[in-house]
Amino acid sequence: MNSRELWISFQTIVIKEVSRFARIWPQTIVPPVITTSLYFVIFGSLIGPRIGEMQGFAYMDFIVPGLILMSVITNSYANVSSSFYSSKFQRSIEEILVSPTPEWIILAGYICGGMVRGIGVGLAVTLVALFFSDLAIHNLFVLCSVVVLTSILFALAGFTNGMLAKSFDDISIIPTFILTPLTYLGGIFYSVKLLPDFWQGVSLINPILYMINAFRFGFLGISDIGLVYSYVIILVFIAILFFVNFQLLRRGHGIRS
């Protein structure tokens, strides 16, 4: 395929992915917005004032970046894992497999679809957050680059999940047992500096901590972690997951007998 044909094929996958989640918006867009709004109300408005300041910021302002990024993470992931798995389950993935579209375009298309949903929901949550907090932006470049990279990373992880899943249960196991705990323990609600040394050390194994802190830096200019470490960690994970997914697709794991 020439570059124009590749572009058409890529666009086709992205548009198909976006219209899929847009069609079922009550399942895909509304719930995360409601959930995060509840966080804002309960932790920010009701409990927040009693907690006082966190690293010199009102508690509400402190948790907003993490909650936005959490919605980006879960939605990027969920979109790709469930969409890819169901196209595998319905075998409509064969429509792409018989075509000349190369593996990397398939991967890029699904990832981009996941990013649109992740970042779209992130934006919706940000709009809601504006009712609760005056969001200032400290560094727009960090903000945008971290959200885009994080979204790529978790879309890739969702793809791996979709490829390896053998049943619909497998699609919810990883988010429930790994993703959500890691996100909650990734410093959305607290600064890891509040933890005892030992638990600070343990927290550093959690890659999500690096993303949330870098993202918070974009808004507030504070971070528990050096920015460079955050970028390195994110990029390394992206590289690994890209490679893994590419190999799985190549071998046709679970999609070719």
Binding site: R4, E5, L6, I8, S9, E95, I96, S99, P100
Partner: peptide, 8 residues
């Protein structure tokens, strides 16, 4: 969509 996958 199928046309798209063939770059049409």
């Amino acid at each position: 969509n199928q046309a798209g996958y063939y770059g049409i």
